[in-house]
Computed example of a mutant assay.
Amino acid sequence: MDLVIVGGGIGGLAAALAAARAGCRVTVLERRDVMSELGAGIQLAPNAFHALDRLGVGDAVRDRCVRIETLRLMDGTSDETLAAMPLTGAYRTRFGHPYAVVHRADLHRPLLDACRDAGVELRVDSGLTRYEQGAVDVTAVLADGERVRGHALIGADGIRSTVRAQLLGDGEPRVSGHTIYRSLVPMDSVPQELRWNAVTLWAGPKWHLVHYPIASGEFLNLAVTRDDGARQAVAGVPVPRERVLGEFPGLGSYPRRLLELGRDWRTWVLCDRDPVGTWTEARVALLGDAAHPMLQYAAQGACQALEDAVVLGGLLDGAGPDDVPQRLEKYAAARRERTAKAQLVARRMGERLYHPQGRAATERNAMLATLSTTDMYDAVHWLHGERTFLAPGVG
């Protein structure tokens, strides 16, 4: 069976690898002139490693990642610890894998190499304009007029997916009103007392700062977000250091020192979409951010795309052309509820956990003070401990 995947990012390559290992002939169409991954740090919970192992690239990613010892939530104005969840020992025993962080390129590269080894056709400068469905096939029509035929087409082309625009026609993404600034800091310029093997989040009134080591500990990933009501989407625009420092006057001493380390800042306005009930149209389906884009606050965007890929590959195993519409419906049905919950939880985390102020912040602090380590593990179990997507498909 011939499968066409639109998008050569993490989700698209993971889907291509899963499908190739299920026996499909796979072509990946990437609109840019290179197969690469934009961005910096990414967090990988154990559910991501379950998926990566199923895809056969878990060890390659583990070789490039930093295993994190703690998730910390701090008061960004007083420097006090609000909650800390250990990620060694009992956590790894319960969830089966570490919690790790990695540069996005160090996740993308193993997937890309494995796709090449699996015989996936990888095409750049191949932007999609539309697709056309027939009785037994679907054709991707490219910007230069070329037509690429397959028995199924998967839209893994991100939050502004061309495939989704044709399939759903639901317009532009939802602008969250949150502006994020990102910087990578060489670790040798970070004072020793600030080099923590943790994902640390400093929460303040309508803002928060996150930092953790990436690239095998060579860099510190800094991301600071402000709930400023931004209404226009922005992506990767350079901003002066002085502007970033001026946006966060209320930081405590530790987060202020961290913020001052940043150079070469870039900014984005965060976007997502509401969950939807339709991911498929006959021989076409959505995957990853094209299907369920979510805010970064649950650190599950890439993790959920990897799960999508494993489920899709399992359901395509042994499938023939005539089976495609039914198998794609089963894939969407298996994934919609879980990813919708992750989308909505990510929104709520921004509102109730990271950005509250005044009385709401006091109530948050009181609630967090009551939680034991087991309580925290129980709270994340539905995300980090999920393994049902590893069940074999219908071959």
Rank of each mutant, 00 (worst) to 15 (best):
V124F: 00
V148Q: 01
A118W: 10
C115I: 05
C115E: 05
Q133D: 05
G134F: 11
I180Y: 07
L220Y: 08
L194F: 07
A135S: 14
D125G: 06
Y212K: 05
S126H: 10
Y212P: 05
D144R: 07
E193M: 01
A223S: 15
V239Y: 05
L209K: 05
G150M: 10
A235G: 09
S216G: 13
H178W: 12
L122F: 11
V239T: 13
G155T: 01
L112N: 00
E172M: 06
A223K: 05
S126N: 08
D113Q: 12
S183C: 01
R149G: 09
S216I: 06
D227W: 11
G204I: 04
E218M: 09
A118E: 03
V141P: 00
D137G: 12
E121Y: 00
D188T: 13
L167Q: 04
N197E: 11
A152R: 05
P110Q: 06
Q133G: 15
W207L: 11
Q166F: 03
R149Q: 13
G145T: 06
R195D: 08
I180N: 07
L122Y: 08
A156Y: 00
A114Y: 05
E193P: 00
Y181C: 08
L128D: 03
L209I: 11
M187Y: 06
R130C: 13
I214H: 01
V124Q: 05
M187D: 06
I154T: 00
A156Q: 02
P205I: 05
G155K: 02
